[in-house]
Computed example of a mutant assay.
Amino acid sequence: MTGIRVAAAGDIPEGEGIVVSRDQTGTEDDIALLKDEDGTVWALNDTCTHERASLADGWVEDGHVECPLHSSRFCLKNGQVDGLPATRDTVAHRVEVRDGEVYLFPGEQP
C-alpha cells in the first residue's frame, strides 16, 4: 500500500491537530493528524475513548495528546492511555511525510 495523501505537513500547526474524515480514510473513526513540538506528524483515531471529544482539538505536548474535554492523555506513538479518566487505548496509524505531503496508512501500526 502506498498510503493516502491526507494533508500537507504545513496544514497542521505545531502542537495541534487536524481531522481527516473517515469518508476519506475508509476507517471506522475520523483520524486526528497531530504534530508534536519537533514537527513529527502522528495519527490516532480522533474520538477520545473516554467521552465523545475530538483529540484533534486537544493539546499536543511531550509525545502525548491531551483530550480537551476531561484531560485524558494518549501516547502519540502507540495510542496508549497515559492519563485518566480514559482507560482504553486508542488506535494509532502509520504516517509518512514525503516532500511536505502527509500520507496515512490506515490500520497499519506506526
Rank of each mutant, 00 (worst) to 15 (best):
F105C: 08
E37S: 15
G63C: 05
C48L: 04
Q109T: 14
R52P: 00
D89Y: 00
E101I: 00
N45V: 01
M1L: 10
T87F: 11
T40L: 01
E28C: 00
G107L: 05
D30E: 11
Y103Q: 03
E37I: 01
T2M: 09
N78S: 04
A56D: 08
G15W: 08
G39M: 09
D30N: 15
D57M: 09
L69Q: 12
S21E: 10
A32W: 02
C67H: 07
T40N: 07
V91Q: 15
G63I: 04
D36L: 04
E96G: 01
A92T: 02
D36W: 02
V20L: 04
I31K: 06
V41T: 03
T47L: 13
H64S: 03
T87M: 13
V97G: 09
D62R: 08
P110Q: 01
P68I: 05
V65R: 07
A43N: 10
G26Y: 05
P13N: 11
V95S: 05
G100W: 02
I4H: 02
A43H: 12
H64F: 08
S71G: 00
C75P: 00
E108G: 00
T2P: 11
D57A: 14
S54Q: 12
D89R: 10
T90Q: 04
K35Y: 01
D82F: 03
P110A: 01
C48P: 06
E14R: 14
W59N: 11
I18H: 05
R22G: 06
L84A: 11
G58Y: 06
A92K: 00
V19C: 04
H70G: 12
A32C: 07
P68L: 04
T40E: 15
G17S: 08
A86Q: 12
L33I: 02
K77E: 15
D82K: 03
E66D: 04
Q24C: 00
V102M: 06
V81H: 05
V91R: 13
H64T: 13
D57N: 13
I18K: 07
A53G: 15
T47P: 00
S72P: 02
A92C: 11
T40F: 01
R5C: 14
A43E: 08
D30C: 02
D62H: 07
T2K: 14
R98D: 09
V41L: 08
Q109A: 15
T47E: 15
G39T: 10
D82C: 14
G107D: 06
D23F: 08
P68F: 05
E37W: 10
A8N: 15
A92G: 10
D23R: 11
I31E: 06
N45D: 15
A8T: 05
G26A: 09
N78L: 01
R22K: 15
P110N: 04
Q109F: 14
R52C: 12
Y103V: 05
G107P: 06
A9P: 00
M1P: 12
D89E: 13
W42T: 09
I18W: 06
D30T: 08
T2H: 09
A7V: 00
C75W: 01
A43F: 06
D11P: 04
I18L: 07
D38F: 03
I18G: 08
P85M: 05
G83L: 03
V65Q: 09
R98Y: 02
V65P: 06
K35A: 07
T47Q: 15
S71M: 13
